[in-house]
Design a protein around this nucleic acid. Structure first.
Lengths: 233, 233
DNA sequence: TTGATTAATTAACATCATGTCAGTATGGTC
DNA sequence: GACCATACTGACATGATGTTAATTAATCAA
């Protein structure tokens, strides 16, 4: 494969970019077919045969791009994760009223997960049938747990949240979200997003900032950048 | 099958109990093998062949008792549900300090689910691959939701819990429990049950009776049988 | 105990999805 | 237009599933 590279000392194109566009296009076509299929069918009904029937390509070609359907689901999961992360940024990163920011982030999360509910469902179904997808799913949840824990700890240092180990609560809250999205939005016709946002919002705000803020969605709290290592006395 | 029953007017044994013990025993042996298998392997690795290899019976005999592995999982789910229901009785039915009873019920639930964690995991995995198991799983959750909603509504009437629609909260709390059990106890080595009980307990008590009772696990509240339809004035 | 009857069991088969491979076609670059 | 790597395909081997027809074993009546 790399036998000819030693002819001259200088190699201009160790990865010939020659036909790279073609295979990228094919891969995208398969992923697209998967999205179209999973929008209206569940993962358990997806065979390689049916999937490739939605493309202009033959079944064996599938295996040039993915080892099996589970590897396909891993790619799909990566796409979903990056989509969701975009929406959740406000509470995680911005300064300002934490209750309002949290509400805003949750609203964005619900909106996104409403749109991709059937795909989330497909990934969790796939996780049940394959160890690697399962690991990927839990690793994603762990990353969310990390981020939320960090955010809680920061607000605890600012005195906005009372002191306790943030990790178990973060895990639980994220788990709530994931379960609700899958259950409510996983199969069409999907449930309405409003009650889901209402319930999730209540859970997060009441367990973090106290029940008094639940109804309003805004507070008189304010988050300012904490001064790291102030001058010693 | 029922052709001979019309000979005399009286039929003593419409279902001949003749060899009923034998088939019951075989069925039980298969279920037992399933429990043994799923204790140390995941559902995705369970084939009819491997399963029946753990019994003294041949593979095709499996199909005399179950249409497929999913139907087996439905039977298994029914066993789990009745097991769990036993433990949760106190808070659902008894009178007394509601916070203490709730804590007691949750502790029992955690204990039971710790013991059958791998089986819960197996059922949820199976739910992802089969529509009927999935329906069965959600129906079970619905029944729990009903019971909890009813309990909450009753305590609301007694003024122990503030007024709001109990169903979404009940759904969420049950969902939390189920997810935590599967995640923490689903694969061996299982996570420790104590932190799980701690986190779940906190979520239930704080969202129902208020954060002040979280740490203690007991309260000065007391639940007495509500008088149904008292005499009109 | 014995034979009749029915249930339980099995060996062998047909089906289906999977994943692989050797050979063919194609598109991009010179 | 010719070459080359890459992408694609038809045909095959494998493994699990679920069925059927034939065999075996257990129960009960006499």
């Amino acid at each position: 494969m790399s036998a000819k590279l030693s002819v001259s000392g200088v190699v201009f194109k160790p990865e010939p970019t020659q036909t790279i566009g073609r295979s990228e296009r094919t891969r995208a076509e398969i992923l697209d077919a998967a999205f179209r299929f999973l929008w209206s069918h569940s993962f358990r009904d997806m065979t390689v045969d049916k999937l490739m029937g939605l493309t202009s390509i033959s079944r064996p070609s599938f295996y040039n791009y993915f080892a099996d359907t589970h590897e396909l689901m891993e790619s799909l999961l990566a796409i979903l994760e990056s989509d969701i992360l975009k929406g959740v940024n406000p509470w995680l990163c911005d300064d300002g009223d934490p209750v309002a920011l949290l509400h805003q982030s949750l609203a964005a999360e619900v909106r996104i997960c409403y749109r991709c509910g059937p795909f989330l469902k497909a990934v969790t179904d796939a996780a049940g049938t394959d160890a690697r997808v399962e690991a990927g799913w839990y690793e994603m949840l762990d990353r969310f747990d990390d981020a939320v824990s960090e955010r809680i700890a920061a607000d605890q240092e600012l005195g906005l949240i009372e002191s306790f180990d943030p990790r178990p609560l973060a895990t639980m809250l994220n788990q709530v979200d994931a379960s609700m999205y899958v259950r409510a939005f996983g199969q069409r016709p999907r449930g309405r997003p409003e009650p889901v946002l209402e319930a999730i919002s209540r859970a997060w705000i009441s367990s973090l900032y106290g029940q008094k803020w639940v109804a309003s969605g805004t507070s008189t709290l304010f988050r300012k950048q904490k001064i790291v290592s102030p001058e010693p006395l």
